[in-house]
Simulated assay, not measured.
Amino acid sequence: MTYLSRVRMNPLRAASRNLLANPRALHAAVLGGLPDPTADERILWRLDNDNPHRPHLLVLTRSRPDWSHLVEQIGWPDADGEHAAVRDYAPLLAQIAVGREFAFRLTANPIQNTQTPDKPTTAQAKLLAERAKAGEKRGRGFRLAHRTAAAQLNWFLSRTGRWGFDVPGVRSDPAAPGIRDLARPDEATETGRPPWDPNPPYEVRITARNRHSVQKNLKGAPVVFHSATFEGRLLVTDTELFKAGLLGGIGPSKAYGCGLLTLAPLPKG
């Protein structure tokens, strides 16, 4: 079984302010909702903060969770309404078929791997010098964040095929003459870098972009990553790949709230 949960958060409570500011602490609180999580269970979560006065926590789990501790710490335990909705995910999975279209939301960590960073950090420069001294022509690549909206959009659009879906073109009039479309990966230039357009003619947009700094321990350097939230319309092209992305997550930094792809019916009309 798989379950999708939605937990209301009261941002005025001290515990909520701590979790909203600390993805690592929020991940620990999510794990606390499962009495006996298995080592191979992939837990996906996302913080939806469209309305900062009424944020919501979404969590996808294989086993049925209990969010009583979160409701007591960060919610409105004595108020009316459904504090923590838990829904069986099977009915949604049964709707997945090639050609089906959905509205979607995804918060992801767009990254690239490179052997030669343009502006290496002190640690990267030291490692590159050590490799050069040892005569190593190639080594493990460096994971670098895409920091601009254009690069993040290109990262997303160039990978939809491997995730089992496509993003259709916008249903509107053609762009005015001289407006350059965002190139697909097979249209890349000789450098391997497509001409990025911050306003691609596809049914997707970035609704939030954030830089996160997570302190793992008192001595080590913080983990820094960049996230982008994508919203739009998608069309399923491969059911197995698509379900794998839904259940296993998309991209890195899943423990820090990235990778959960959620679907909704398309608005009528």
Rank of each mutant, 00 (worst) to 15 (best):
E231W: 04
V223M: 03
A221D: 15
F230E: 07
T229S: 06
V224K: 12
T229C: 10
A221K: 14
V236N: 09
N210V: 04
L241N: 12
H212Y: 05
G232W: 09
H226T: 03
E240F: 00
V223K: 13
N217Q: 06
H226R: 02
N210A: 14
V224D: 15
L218K: 14
R209S: 13
N217M: 12
S213R: 11
F230D: 07
F225M: 01
H212P: 10
F230I: 08
P222A: 15
R233G: 03
K219D: 11
K219N: 02
K216P: 08
T239K: 12
H226Y: 03
V224R: 13
T239A: 11
E231F: 04
A228V: 06
K219P: 01
S227G: 05
K216C: 11
L234D: 04
H226W: 02
R211K: 11
E240R: 12
L235M: 14
H212Q: 08
P222Q: 15
D238R: 04
T237Q: 14
H226P: 03
F230C: 08
G220M: 03
V224E: 12
F242V: 10
V214P: 12
P222R: 15
R233Q: 10
A228P: 05
F242I: 00
T229F: 04
D238E: 07
K216Y: 04
R211A: 06
S213P: 02
P222G: 15
L235A: 13
G220R: 05
H226M: 03
H212E: 08
V236W: 00
K216T: 12
E231D: 14
G220T: 14
Q215E: 13
E240K: 09
K216R: 14
H226L: 05
S227T: 08
T239R: 10
H212V: 08
T229V: 01
L241G: 14
P222C: 15
G232L: 08
R211H: 12
L235I: 08
H212G: 01
N210S: 06
G232Q: 07
R233D: 02
S227R: 00
F230H: 12
F242P: 00
N210K: 10
S227A: 03
R233A: 00
F242N: 08
G220F: 04
T237D: 10
N210I: 02
F225A: 06
T237P: 10
V214F: 13
L218V: 15
L234C: 04
T239S: 10
N210F: 01
D238V: 04
R211Q: 13
L235W: 02
V223Y: 11
A221V: 00
V223I: 06
R209Y: 03
F225I: 01
K216F: 10
T239P: 06
D238A: 10
G220K: 13
K219C: 00
